[in-house]
Simulated assay, not measured.
Amino acid sequence: MKNKNAPGEGPPKDPAIEAETDALAQLVDAIFRRMPQALAAVVASPASGPWRAIAARGRQESSFAAGQSLEQPENAWMRELGEPAIDPPPPENGALRLRQPITLRDGSFFGNLCLVASRADSVADAGLRDAAGVFAELAALLIAQSRRSAEAEARLGNEAAAAEQRERFVAVLAHDLRTPLSTVRALGETLSIAPERANLPRIAKILLAAVARMASLIDGVLDLARARLGGGITMRWQSCPDLAERLSQVVEEVREARPGQQIDSQIRIARAIDCDPTRLQQLLGNLLDNALTHGARDRPVSIVAETSESELEIRVANEGAELDQETRERIFEPFWRPKGAKRPDGLGLGLFIVEHIATRHGGSIRVDSKDGSTIFVFSMPVSRA
């Protein structure tokens, strides 16, 4: 029979703690089956904060319950540290109170195994103390085993999630590369048989766009690998006096690519910034792409970039449906997309890379979504000094 927490305590949320609790509950059950003289058995521990009964059994309704606090003065004997001790019997009931420390394999103190038993004689009491020592050692073994099991399950879960993520990544990458590759192949075949050269400029422009799309996908994969393996994405630091011009160039390129979309831009940077300007262009481009993809098509997207005495701040906002809590919490994860996303394909690396660019600049990125508007705010120091 499993001991549950006392009302109001709630079940443990950590699977490892829950496994420990179940194992220790089975231990105190076993103590009661093997030791008929036991009146109460409690595993007392401060592992999760104040001292409480991790597991408990008693033969009376007023006995200890799993989950209850042990901070009361009458339970002080359960909270004492050091060598095991047999307390003198209380004169009113003649019961024996015994405390045995539970020491884990790494030498750390977990808590005490506390027993209240009927007093018999000195021989029986000594035997009870020896048994308590054995049960305390068994408790340490059960805790270690439950923790190993929980860690193994967590690793298996992480590996399964990683495997699923890798499969999805490969499938999406193959899908996204297929389209520009098909374009390059079709135009190459056209060039091989076309006698006239009048369409060469148009064909060249389409070819370059397809190659740029493939290069962008490959760069995203490389940035993902650099962010997760080794020293993070590559950075080329410099003092950049023309960052405003570089960011304005990104905005103009996006406007040209999406002529029907209103993009309002206010870029006020009148000083040199210690940064990797190419990475900040990438950051702004990714934020703009996200805003244009997920925002309302008939509403403007706004960009504001400005400096204070010590910080550069870039804000990108769009109007449209507000982000729910799960999306706000997971939006910077790679490959993750909210249900009903407007663009179900794609690698889903844009905002993940944005967060890493922000971190590498010693800055931060956050998202706020309310009143029909979503805004991403990036900030960083203007100087590395």
Results as ranks from 00 to 15, higher is better:
57 R>A: 13
143 I>K: 02
270 A>H: 09
256 E>H: 13
179 T>C: 00
363 G>T: 10
380 M>P: 01
207 L>P: 11
318 N>I: 01
64 F>A: 10
247 L>A: 03
169 F>E: 14
3 N>T: 13
179 T>Y: 06
282 Q>I: 08
257 A>P: 03
53 A>P: 02
20 E>L: 04
89 P>A: 15
4 K>T: 14
186 A>H: 08
226 R>K: 13
147 R>K: 07
217 L>H: 10
273 I>E: 03
13 K>T: 11
152 A>K: 06
49 G>M: 06
231 G>D: 15
180 P>R: 03
142 L>H: 03
195 P>N: 04
2 K>Y: 10
94 G>K: 11
284 L>E: 00
355 E>I: 05
372 G>D: 12
29 D>H: 13
42 V>Y: 00
134 V>D: 07
45 S>Q: 10
6 A>T: 09
115 L>F: 00
4 K>C: 10
350 G>K: 03
44 A>P: 06
8 G>F: 10
86 I>E: 04
48 S>L: 13
180 P>I: 08
42 V>I: 15
311 E>T: 13
45 S>V: 09
345 D>W: 13
337 R>A: 12
201 P>S: 11
352 F>I: 03
168 R>K: 15
1 M>D: 11
55 A>F: 04
73 P>Y: 00
110 F>C: 07
357 I>P: 05
190 T>Q: 11
232 G>S: 07
12 P>F: 05
